[in-house]
């Protein structure tokens, strides 16, 4: 049971999230089941007003969540100093059974909440309110994901044992064990790189052809291949150590916090790409999203590609 001020802060904010999200959930249910666009009764007007409340709450939760997510990463690093054996966040994540799932869920939730916000903006800007009921149905599902995340997080912090030794990222991401991760990492880097750059090129093609569904799908694949290639290949060039595969250590000062930049670029770029395939946008909006998506994914690509190239130029060999 671990109780540092940072963890208490996270608990408090989670509590606030839970309370407000539940309020929003209550109203969402009402709206989904009772709202009738064509009726003009007082009930309908009330529901319309309540839809603003739900939207505001969700907006607040999302933006605060981003801050808390950053804080969460800091906290993981912090805990790593008091957890024997852990030298970066990876050790803490792995300290309990919940850690990895929590992290994945957090990231998925970020994408989903962002999606909801775009959905909401689109809905508000259309006179017929095309997504009104739909967005609340989506929220009803999202609510459970949020609650799931809060529960997992509480469980994780609760069950961290400062007395038992955990693996450090060197062990978690080693290539020699029979773990899932090891198998992933022992794939030939050439294949990974080929996949990475191919998907990117395909993204550009689908942009030129203006096929938003393929573009969206490719962005989704891009997230996955980026993370894998980062851990397996690019990361090692950032660390200049062929066995250092940890995605967390990038976030530390030793590496100029480059991890934050990379992950943020990846998120913004791929989110805008993915969302294109999920909704209809005006021509202008669509164009903007294509541009933002390509801009950030290209930035990401350039950044990660820089490291192996720079290394090769400096040293004349690859790792």
């Amino acid at each position: 049971m671990l109780l540092t001020p940072e963890i208490i802060t996270i608990y408090i904010l989670n509590l606030i999230f839970f309370i407000f999200a539940s309020v929003a959930f209550y109203y969402s249910v009402k709206i989904v089941f009772l709202y009738d666009k064509n009726a003009m009764s007082t009930l309908q007007y009330k529901l319309q007003k309540q839809s603003y409340l739900v939207a505001t709450i969700i907006k607040f939760i999302f933006y605060t969540k981003i801050l808390v997510f950053l804080f969460f990463i800091f906290t993981l690093d912090d805990i790593a100093t008091i957890l024997p054996g852990a030298m970066c966040g990876a050790g803490v994540v792995n300290a309990t059974a919940y850690g990895t799932y929590l992290l994945i869920l957090k990231i998925i939730n970020l994408y989903i909440f962002a999606y909801w916000l775009v959905l909401n903006t689109q809905d508000i800007n259309s006179e017929e309110q095309v997504y009104l009921k739909y967005k609340f149905q989506v929220y009803m599902a999202v609510y459970f994901l949020l609650v799931g995340e809060i529960i997992l997080e509480s469980l994780m912090f609760f069950s961290i044992d400062t007395k038992s030794v955990v693996d450090c990222c060197g062990t978690i991401f080693s290539t020699t064990d029979g773990t899932y991760m090891a198998k992933l990492l022992s794939v030939d880097p050439m294949i990974l790189l080929a996949t990475f750059y191919t998907i990117y090129s395909l993204m550009i093609c689908s942009y030129i052809l203006k096929n938003k569904y393929i573009f969206s799908l490719l962005n989704l694949l891009f997230v996955i291949i980026s993370l894998v290639s980062l851990i397996a290949y690019f990361g090692t060039y950032i660390y200049e150590l062929p066995t250092h595969h940890c995605p967390f250590c990038l976030l530390q000062r030793d590496y100029n916090y480059i991890g934050y930049l990379l992950y943020i670029f990846l998120f913004i770029g791929t989110f805008h790409g993915i969302v294109l395939g999920l909704m209809d946008f005006s021509v202008e909006e669509e164009r903007k999203k294509y541009r933002i998506s390509l801009f950030f994914t290209t930035l990401y690509l350039l950044f990660v590609s820089y490291f192996p190239i720079a290394y090769y130029i400096k040293n004349g060999v690859c790792l």
């Binding site: 003009m40 007007y45 319309q48 007003k49 603003y52 508000i124 006179e127 309110q129």
Partner: peptide
């Protein structure tokens, strides 16, 4: 205000049916 019955149309826009935002 929104009418209890009937329609208010301004410049071919049914304003009585518009959501608050619009």
């Amino acid at each position: 205000l929104k009418p209890t019955q009937g329609d208010v149309v301004v410049d071919a826009k049914h304003i009585s049916k518009l959501p608050d935002h619009f």
